[in-house]
Design a protein around this nucleic acid. Structure first.
Length: 638
RNA sequence: GCCGACGUAGCUCAAUCGGCAGAGCAUCCGCCUUGUAAGCGGACGGUUGUCGGUUCGAGUCCGACCGUCGGCUCCA
């Protein structure tokens, strides 16, 4: 699948973020995450922010709230912002909403919209506001926050220069605490271009200690055509869902008796993963990495020293008792790599050491967050730790970022978004180390000419990092790669090398994973390619289809020649009709089907049909072999 | 973990008010010998996720557990 011309991103991104399609995704900076944008990015975002859509969606949320309150007069309302692709509103209601309720609400919304009720803005005093919302505890909390903390109604900081004022917008019978903007009257919400999608639980203010509200998600557009396109896109997303394709293509499974979030890789996926890993490992060797292998468990003293039992314990599985000692299954590989580093004295001459391992780790993830291959409890990282001297650090960062892009591009990803996370308030390591590291990361990003955002204070306490998100064929972004400084572990484990001066020095340690985890990356690959992987990765590249069984012998000869040429080919000698064989191969997304019948036997040729529907009759086998060789060499799609 | 929904053959789904558990595909066995996405017929396949409860009787009602899905929260 090529890039879709129109690519609305998914509707589940950050709170308060407002996204609009086109090939650039964009967020309106209303979230309370401390995110500052690079200038380039900010300009891009201003261009794609669509105020008309914002108004429509924001207004649709108000109309929905009115409809819900009419249904449940005793209901409490929370917040209802526009988001990319739509809007939501959170409610505290006496009973759970059903799909039938949504239909009724939607119907009532249409009536309200047709009423063309004007949206009227007014400023209110704190006293007025408190009186107006005296039965709405969530609104009262927001009012106090706006007054005391100077935030907007979603708890986000106000734009510079804006004073905290209380404003409401009223249409028909519904008045809401709101900063706007809205459409002029409800009739400007396109009555046939919105749809309520689903109900979901959501904590008040995203805090799991606070009440669970019911959130209704809706989508709204400027025209029915846009809505139609969006709904079609949702269908396409469903078709590409890696969980569905994983089953259809017999790629992987899970089983309750094995355990949630633990993946069984079936032979086809095993083959593809093998190809991916072989390639990536070769590249690692070419790029100066050394491979290590380390155990899956380690004694508690190791995890105490690394700090994992202090800071990461809730993600670790309970220890097992071995000869009276506690052993833990590893959630990370770093302590083991460090022990290899520490196994002898290190000289400045042998740095950098780039220690890589396809390390399988296990992390406890709360049951509700598990999701196919994307979020699991056991996974294999393409992990490496780079130990280097301070003077080598900038170059190492540069190299690792280039290497990351090389690997990701090899797997067919072209669009990336980078996030640079800087020093949080509580942190280990000197100011100088942080400054140097952050500078090296940002310089590398600029040299790589990557769009990036800076997440001020978003780094871990032990070091700054770059996270790379890659964009798939549907324009959705996925976090896989991470390049992360660690100022903590070298201290904790007292890592040293002997410098030119004969004295001990502390090396820098950089943790990095390029694909991230094989599980997630494979999941992203499935969705990116909709299961039709590039030819070099496909377990079966060519299916030879004899038309009648008198052609089986010739088909077998073709298969043999292809295999001799290093192409993974097989014949379909079943007694299905040719049409059925084609359909079968097509459903398996096998790149090339070679059809052989009387004509081909006679002329010593093959007829080609690709999984994309391309047809070429009676071509010489050698020409086809040449084509496949080229496509494989280029890691092309077909 | 929390809110809500769901779990029937390998897969996709039926089964009225609580009254004998079904279809298509897949698989297997035959027949057919075929020209670019499903040829025809037959057979096999189930302790309705698990455990417990209500009932004369439970796929259907109730409870617990396991798992999945949509979100929230948290992350490769």
């Amino acid at each position: 699948m090529g890039g879709t011309a129109w690519e609305p991103p998914r509707p589940d991104m950050g709170e308060g973020a407002f996204w609009f399609g086109g090939s650039h995704t964009a967020s309106r900076p209303t979230s309370d995450r401390r995110t500052t944008m690079a200038k380039k990015q900010r300009e891009k975002k201003e261009q794609t922010y669509d105020e008309e859509l914002y108004r429509i969606r924001h207004s649709a949320a108000h109309v929905m709230a009115q409809a819900v309150l009419e249904m449940f007069p005793e209901g409490k309302i929370a917040i209802g912002p526009p988001i990319k692709d739509g809007f939501y509103y959170d409610f505290d209601l006496p009973r759970p909403l059903t799909p039938e309720d949504l239909e009724k609400i939607e119907e009532r919304m249409r009536e309200i919209i047709k009423g063309k009720h004007p949206f009227i803005r007014r400023e209110v005093t704190p006293e007025e506001a408190r009186e107006l919302f005296k039965d709405q505890p969530y609104k009262l909390e927001l009012i106090e926050d706006i007054l005391s903390r100077g935030t907007d109604e979603y708890g986000n900081p106000l734009p510079e220069g804006e004073r905290p004022t209380l404003t409401t917008y009223k249409h028909d019978t519904f008045e809401d605490l709101c900063r706007g903007p809205h459409v002029e009257h409800t009739g400007q919400i396109p009555v046939n271009a919105f749809k309520l999608l689903n109900v979901a639980g959501a904590y008040w203010r995203g805090d799991e200690n606070r009440p669970m509200l019911q959130r209704i998600y809706g989508t709204a557009w400027k025209s029915p055509k846009d809505l139609r396109r969006y709904l079609n896109w949702l269908e396409e997303v469903k078709k590409r869902d890696h969980r569905r394709l994983g089953k259809e293509l017999d790629l992987f499974s899970t089983h309750p008796d094995v355990g949630a979030g633990l993946i069984l890789w079936h032979p086809k996926a095993g083959f593809i993963r093998h190809m991916m890993e072989s390639f990536a490992k070769e590249e690692h060797l070419k790029h100066g990495y050394v491979f290590v292998y380390t155990p899956h468990i380690g004694k508690s003293i190791l995890w105490e020293r690394s700090g994992h039992l202090d800071f990461y314990k809730e993600n670790m599985y309970a220890p097992m008792d071995i000869d009276g000692q506690d052993y833990y299954v590893k959630p990370m590989n770093c302590p083991f790599h460090i022990m290899i580093y520490k196994s002898r004295i290190r000289s400045y001459r042998e740095l950098p050491i780039r220690m890589a391992e396809w390390g399988t780790v296990y992390r406890y993830e709360r049951a509700g967050v598990l999701h196919g291959l994307m979020r699991v409890r056991g996974f294999t990282q393409d992990d490496a730790h780079i130990f280097c001297r301070p003077d080598q650090m900038p170059e190492e960062i540069d190299k690792v970022l280039q290497f990351t892009l090389h690997i990701l591009r090899s797997f067919g990803f072209e669009d990336f978004q980078a996030y640079l996370s800087t020093r949080p308030e509580k942190a280990v390591g000197s100011d100088e180390m942080w400054r140097d590291a952050e500078k090296a990361l940002e310089d590398a990003l600029q040299r790589a000419d990557l769009p990036y955002e800076i997440d001020e204070g978003g780094g871990a306490f032990y070091g700054p990092k770059i996270d790379l998100k890659l964009k798939d064929a549907l324009g959705r972004t996925w976090q896989c790669s991470t390049i992360q400084f660690d100022f903590n572990l070298p201290e904790r484990f007292d890592l040293t090398y002997i410098g030119e001066d004969g004295k001990e020095h502390r090396p820098y340690m950089i943790h990095r994973a390029l694909m991230g985890s094989m599980e997630r990356f494979f999941g992203v690959m499935i969705e990116h390619y909709a299961g039709a992987f590039p030819v070099w990765l496909m377990p079966t590249q060519v299916r030879v289809i004899p038309i009648a069984d008198r052609h089986n012998e010739y088909a077998a000869q073709v298969v043999e020649k292809l295999q001799a040429a290093g192409i993974r080919a097989e014949g379909d000698y079943s007694d299905d009709r040719m049409n059925a064989k084609i359909r079968k191969a097509q459903l398996e997304k096998i790149p090339y089907m070679l059809i052989v019948g009387d004509k081909e036997v006679e002329q010593g040729t093959v007829s080609l049909r690709t999984r994309t529907g391309e047809k070429q009759n009676n071509i010489p086998l050698d020409a086809f072999i040449e084509r496949v060789h080229k496509v494989v060499a280029e890691k092309a799609l077909i």
